[in-house]
């Protein structure tokens, strides 16, 4: 991880309140692993914002991030036009462990938890794995990256209100898919809790979201318990990806 400057190359709204931003920086594009994030500094904001990396292009030296407007920080971020220089700490955290045994992989993403799974899915496809994706969104207006995931493999879209794809939660779609060897999931904690209990006997990795302070492991703002005896992990430094049995959701 370094403190790096990234140039905004492109910004577009790809779904309701959801933006895709392409940033240029060779160090980040060359070193980022799926599941890692950028801790972005925003003008007029005391705390940086952790945003997952959705994909990298090593030839163009770019990195793509996706974010949803969720408060003043992300609203500010959506205002940065091409040419603007952003400052980030990154690539931060530990990414997904690529399981060498598994041949069929299930990706389960919820809302703005979908982006890091795309970076992962692309790498897994390069390694000849079969990929099945279940992506959950609030409603039709929030759906993004359906086509991108279809290029990786079989993709199921779920919306909470049924306005697109299957109605329900990502866990409702589990019965519609065939067998798989391991899963990777990212989304809100209640979703991860449900995924992890539904797939208790499967090998799986989850990526967690939390409000962060320093983003480097020094301030203890984003911890998650591992048990009831005071054990913990730091989400920013030890995670954000954990084996589903490593942390207590």
């Amino acid at each position: 991880m370094k403190k790096e400057e990234l140039i905004v190359k492109d910004l577009k709204e790809i779904a309701l309140e959801t933006y895709e931003m392409v940033l240029e920086n060779s160090f980040v594009s060359m070193t980022a692993k799926p599941g890692q994030f950028l801790h972005l500094q925003l003008d007029g904001h005391m705390l940086r914002r952790p945003i997952s990396i959705a994909s990298v292009d090593k030839e163009k030296n770019t990195v793509t991030i996706l974010f949803k407007i969720n408060g003043s920080g992300t609203k500010h971020l959506a205002g940065y036009q091409p040419g603007y220089v952003l400052n980030a700490l990154g690539p931060a955290g530990n990414g997904f462990t690529l399981d060498s045994e598994s041949s069929t992989i299930l990706l389960i993403g919820g809302g703005i938890g979908v982006p890091p799974l795309y970076h992962l899915g692309k790498q897994l496809l390069d390694k000849q794995r079969k990929i099945i994706s279940i992506l959950g969104f609030q409603s039709k207006d929030y759906v993004f990256y359906e086509k991108e995931f279809q290029e990786l493999g079989e993709t199921h879209i779920v919306t909470n209100d049924g306005s697109y794809g299957t109605q329900g939660f990502v866990t409702d779609a589990l019965k519609n898919i065939g067998d798989f060897d391991s899963y990777y999931s990212c989304g809100p904690i209640p979703m991860l809790r449900s995924v992890s209990s539904n797939l208790e006997h499967k090998n799986g990795y989850i990526s967690l979201e939390e409000r962060m302070g320093c983003g480097v492991g020094a301030c203890f703002a984003c911890v998650i318990p591992t048990d009831n005896n005071g054990g913990y992990r730091k989400i920013c430094k030890d995670g954000p990806v954990f084996h589903h049995k490593e942390v207590s959701l």
Partner: peptide, 25 residues
């Protein structure tokens, strides 16, 4: 002795500052 500290969220941004409640972890 060791202390786990408070539940999360433990930080919040404010105008020109931040609030924290780590709880001496």
């Amino acid at each position: 002795e060791s202390r786990f500290g408070n539940q999360t969220p433990r930080v919040a941004e404010t105008a020109s500052g931040m609030l924290n409640a780590i709880g001496l972890q």
